[in-house]
């Protein structure tokens, strides 16, 4: 197969680009590899942060503790979706009789987006068990999760609401012109399109939630970060933190890539 002059030129350019990219990547990695250990404190840092025997010893326990994070994540995610949908619908009602719902929706999003998540975890995670409820309702595990759900619902509700508003009004005109009630228009016509459109944006909150589960370590449950903390005190070594970071990355990096993929696909469909 003979190539045209243009194709030969483009192939040469492509190969040149790959060669330059690879070389510069190798140079930078090599520089880090050789230069960082020259720092005066490197030996100490290596001993207390990248201590292989300690990592091997603590890693299985850290993985066990990570199961707690997975559990918290797994049961807060559906709650967040349901609650945020309810809030978004509240904020979208136009019926004057439902004005209280609208006001409530606006208040809700203002308040729970306005408080730092960690502060809310403290307030609810310590505050409500302090009411002297009986077991299991005095568990900071439950109330810490509630705090996460409240915060995240506020954000996701806003994403859903903007999705609902992004569906063109001609769609609701078409639905209503067929005699569909307002509720049916929302349920069958507007909402499915809004949700589909906002899936990539919501994926970002799913990723953030995976990490923010670690905030619960401050109020009680022995999850990954708390477990790493325990090991750190026990062994006077920071390597368990690095182990915890590795575990989080194993979950969040694929999720982030997947979210990017969804976004790219959506962009391709639109253009």
């Amino acid at each position: 197969m003979s190539l045209t002059a243009r194709q030969r030129f483009e192939r040469r350019e492509r190969l040149r680009g790959i060669a330059i990219g690879t070389t510069s990547l190798v140079l930078v990695v090599a520089a880090i590899y050789w230069l960082v250990p020259l720092a005066p404190g490197w030996e100490a840092v290596q001993r207390s942060f990248f201590n292989w025997p300690i990592l091997v010893k603590t890693f299985p326990k850290l993985l066990d503790a990570f199961l707690v994070d997975v559990m918290i994540f797994a049961w807060s995610l559906p709650l967040i979706l349901v609650l945020s949908l309810a809030i978004a619908l509240c904020r979208n009602t136009r019926n004057p009789a439902l004005l209280p719902l609208r006001v409530f929706g606006a208040f809700y999003t203002d308040i729970f987006r306005g408080i730092p998540t960690i502060l809310l975890v403290y307030l609810i995670g310590f505050g409500i068990p302090g009411l002297g409820l009986s077991r299991p309702w005095n568990s900071p595990y439950i109330w810490g999760t509630v705090a996460l759900v409240l915060t995240y619902s506020a954000y996701v509700a806003e994403v859903l609401r903007s999705g609902i508003e992004s569906v063109h009004s001609s769609q609701s005109a078409a639905a209503r012109s067929l005699g569909l009630s307002e509720a049916d228009s929302m349920r069958y016509v507007i909402l499915p399109q809004a949700i589909r459109r906002q899936v990539p944006a919501m994926m970002n909150f799913v990723i953030a939630l995976q990490k923010d589960v670690a905030l619960l370590s401050f109020v009680g449950p022995i999850e990954l970060l708390r477990q790493a903390n325990v090991f750190k005190s026990l062994m006077a070594n920071f390597t368990p933190y690095v182990g915890a970071a590795i575990i989080f990355l194993c979950v969040t990096v694929p999720a982030t890539r997947y979210a990017d993929y969804l976004l790219a696909r959506q962009r391709a469909v639109r253009s």
Partner: peptide, 18 residues
Amino acid sequence: PNPVRRRIGIVFQSFNLF
């Protein structure tokens, strides 16, 4: 309006299919 709209069909310039 809903019972009335059942009796009157409308088709738009821009189709507006779902």
